[in-house]
Each structure stands twice: as C-alpha cells, then as structure tokens.
Write a protein that binds this DNA or RNA. Structure first.
Lengths: 230, 230
DNA sequence: ACCTGAACACCGTTCAAGT
DNA sequence: ACCTGAACACCGTTCAAGT
C-alpha cells in the first residue's frame, strides 16, 4: 500500500530525473512557485534534500527542468495540412499546456532570459526546431522561417500572459471579486476601465487567440509575398 | 556633500517610497532580481531592513512597486495623430523601458499573475486606461477597444520577451558565445537551428517589433470593418 | 506612537564525516 | 565511490523591548 497520493514517494525505489521533475511540477501546480524548495521537494519525495543534487545541479537547473517537462506535454503533429493550420494547432496546444500549469508559466516565459540559446535544455529548443522545420518544409527560406517563428511565438507567449492575468482562481466568485476590484479604482482616473467591467468578465481566451493567429498569419503571408526586394 | 554614488544613502534624511523603490530598481538593474532582498536593500539605504516595511507591506508589494516605478518611465503622448501611430509609439516606448531594465521585466510580465485587475497598483493600470482612451477617442466601441488592446499588448509583451531571450549580456563575445552554444547542439536533432546561427546573430528587435505592429494593426482594422454582424 | 533589533522558521549549498 | 547530514551564510517576517 502506497503512503501518499499522486507522485507521493517514500524511501523505497530508485529516483529518476523524471520522477524528481514530475514531483517538482506537481508541487508548483499545487502550492505555487515559491513552494518549490529543495528541502520541501526532498520531503515530498521522502528523501534527504541533498539527494536531489544528483538529478539537478542546483535550484535553477531544477526550475529549467520543470519548464522542460512542461514542454514535453506539447505534441507537435507533422501533418500534411498546410503550415498555417499546424501553427494554429500548436498555438492552441501550448495555450492548453499553460492553462494546465499556470503557476509554472513564469518558468517557461522568463526562465531562460539571457541564457544563450545553445545552453538551454534541449526540450526547450525542440518546439523552435520543429516549427522551423514546418516552415522550411512549406517552402520558406530559413531566414523567413525564423521571422515567422518569432512573430508567432511572441504573439503566443503574449497572449498566454494576457489570458493568465485575467484569469482568477475561484470561478464562482469571479464576478464579485472582479467587480469589487474595479470598484476600488477611482472613477475619475479609470473611467474606461470601470465601464468595461462586464466585457472583462466574459473573456474567451481561445477565440481571442485564434483570431490573433489568423490576423498574424495573414499579415505575415502578405508581407513575405510583397517584399521580395528587401 | 553626498556620501555615495547614484541612489546611495546613509542614515541621514527621511526616506520616501520613491527613494526606496528607486534604490530597489537600481539593485535589480545591477545585480539581478534575486539580489533584491529586504536586508540588502536596507544595507544599500543605510537603514535597518525593518524600516522598509514602512514603505511596502512586504516583499511582494515591494516588487509590485518596482514594476510600477518602471512603468512610470513610459510616457504616453495624447497627440492628435491617428490611433495607430500612437499605439506604435507606445510600443517602441515600452520596448525601450524594458531594454533599460531587463532584469526587472519578469516583474512587469509575470508579477501580477492572477492578481485581480482592481487590486493592482494604479501605475500598472494606467497604460491600459490610456490606451482604452486613445481607442475610444478614435471612435471604437469600448468592447472593440478592449479587443484591440489585448491583441496589441499581448504582442508587445511577447515581442519583448522574445527579444530579451536573444539578448546576451556581453556584446563583444556575442558571436563566439552564441556560436559556441549552438555547436553544443546535436546536429542531428537541430539542423535548422544550427543553420540559422548567422541570422540569429543580427536580430533587429526594433524593426521586428515595428513590422509586427504594422501587421497586427492592419489586420485588426480589417477584422473590425468586416465583422459588423457579430 | 514610533523605531529597533533579537528571534523564529525557513532557504540553497558546501563539505567533512561516515559507509 | 557514494550517501548523509551538520554547518554556513543567507532569507522574510513577527513581535517584544526599548524610546
């Protein structure tokens, strides 16, 4: 009989990097980023905290590993449909992964800041490589593929951040909470914002993302067709 | 004669919230986010660390204050040029603020995650209110203004994150470092990425942002003109 | 009423001591 | 050679003691 729920472990059995990272992600999901400490993770795993250093060089490397694990949930389908549909699909896929692990999104988004590309964990680079592959396979010049990737991923990350900012934990109290929040704002300084309370309440992130992607892809196509000179 | 450089302080003179936040931002700029501790900030200010609690309820509130201070650097010009040019200008403005304080960008971008809108510091909400004002002033229905704001700000944040990810500290060693990084990647798994090394090196963030904004604004205009039915 | 700083309950990480 | 855990140098925050 196992002692605890989910990834709960006691001293028995060998740890894996996967097990450690999975437990770390679970900790973040349930108790937030700041709950992920070496000591607490050790406790969850039923091990001496120091033993974690066998699977991650230090806390930062552990955090990077959690981000990597998250991205493993992202499946890329190399279908034969056109590239635009593939990117759209990836966008929705990544959005869902982020909504599943909102507490871990900062790791994904600001974790690798100013870490040189080549030094990042392979898992983090895989989506980039795959998208480049899709675009180059669709006939784009590599430089154009990179251009499209940047616009696409930038928009995608931005959207996810936007959506998470508007998401509030308790869906029951959403309306009350948000309203309450907005009431606090001085009407004099924030007239527009206060007036938009109802619209802020029924935000459809999936649709908003989809529309944005449509606009962006259409615009990128045009831009590339037009500017053959530069 | 003042004792130390920049915001340096010793025990003399009364502190202000502004002084405290400015010192905090400077600490982050120079030594990174993790260097911003109550104790170290107290030391920089030449005061007992506990005295900071007079100006910020706790560390999180301090971090939010730093983000707010950063946004104060963003000027919005209520010109009579058209709304698209105003948004474009804001975009470039925010980009520059972020490049000036790269270490503080996570505060801006993931700081207020899941804090209800109304409970955020006023400084954080001001850009939102101003942009809504610009758009509504330009004749958009409030709901459409919100729609445009979301797409615009999402793209903007995403771009800044993208750009910061590609930015490396030491501009002298950029090429060597990046190349070195990329060499580490298995050619088998990352053929496209490795091939794009030269293109990755001369990334022009300002132009990339400008093109993206153009595409987005054009697309948003079209979408709003077309879909009068929904 | 305000300010100070000792004390508490945590951290990440090093490294000597055990096996 | 591997694992353990004591020890070090930090944290944020509380709260009693001073003024």
């Amino acid at each position: 009989m196992e002692p605890a729920g989910a990834t709960g472990q006691d001293g028995a059995g060998r740890l894996t990097r996967q097990t450690v990272l999975a437990a770390a992600l679970e900790l973040v999901d349930e108790h937030g980023l700041e709950a992920l400490s070496m000591r607490r993770l050790g406790q969850v795993l039923g091990r001496d905290p120091m033993s974690i250093y066998r699977y991650a060089a230090n806390r930062n490397e552990l955090l990077a590993g959690v981000a990597e694990l998250m991205l493993d949930e992202l499946e890329v389908f190399p279908d034969d449909t056109n590239w635009q549909e593939q990117l759209r699909r990836i966008a929705h896929e990544l959005r869902r992964v982020c909504l599943r692990h909102p507490n871990a999104v900062p790791l994904l988004v600001t974790g690798p800041l100013s870490t040189p590309l080549g030094l990042r964990p392979a898992g983090t680079l895989r989506p980039l490589e795959q998208i480049l592959g899709i675009l180059i396979g669709a006939g784009f010049a590599p430089a154009d593929a990179l251009h499209i990737y940047r616009a696409f991923y930038g928009f995608l990350y931005g959207h996810v951040l936007n959506e998470l900012q508007e998401l509030i934990a308790d869906p029951e109290e959403n309306e009350a909470l948000l309203r309450l929040g907005l009431q606090r704002l001085p009407l004099r300084d924030f007239p527009h914002l206060r007036r938009l309370a109802p619209e802020l309440l029924d935000y459809d992130g999936e649709q908003e993302l989809d529309e944005g992607i449509t606009i962006l892809l259409a615009g990128l196509g045009e831009q590339l067709n037009a500017g053959r000179s530069s």
